[in-house]
């Protein structure tokens, strides 16, 4: 007697493919949502970054001759600001090269 393959075996690869497709679709939609949020938040972050730049300049400005809080206040805050100072240095290095960054952020095309 001829044996027919089990129907579930035939369905299995199809189901597997559908599940995979569904996972891809879910990932794509959640990825899309994430990008939207990130992109929108990026614009606000940019403005916040500008404020941070001013803030760090106020705090550490006395080191470069800008009238700022008394040196002892700045010196006391210094250990807490090591990460900020690293970022500040990096930004100072990039401060003459912001055209491309602004173009990327502002969606012109």
């Amino acid at each position: 007697m001829k044996r027919w393959p089990n129907a579930s075996l035939l369905l299995y690869p199809g189901m597997k493919m559908l599940t995979k497709l569904w996972t891809y679709l879910k990932d794509f939609i959640s990825g899309m949502d994430y990008v939207h949020r990130e992109k929108a938040a990026g614009i606000t972050q940019w403005e916040e970054k500008e404020l941070e730049n001013i803030f760090i300049l106020l705090l550490t400005g006395s080191f470069s001759g800008i009238p700022a809080p008394p040196a002892f206040v700045a010196a006391e805050l210094l250990p807490l600001l090591s990460r900020e100072i690293k970022i500040f240095n990096q930004r100072a290095e990039n401060s003459f090269d912001t055209l491309a960054e602004m173009t990327g952020l502002l969606d012109i095309d």
Partner: peptide, 23 residues
């Protein structure tokens, strides 16, 4: 630095980049 230099997953960065160049 957690602010400007932050690694992003390829699909996310692709989405960002594409959204910036498409107009």
């Amino acid at each position: 630095d957690g602010v400007d230099y932050v690694p992003a997953k390829a699909p996310v960065l692709f989405g960002h980049h594409f959204a910036s160049i498409a107009g």
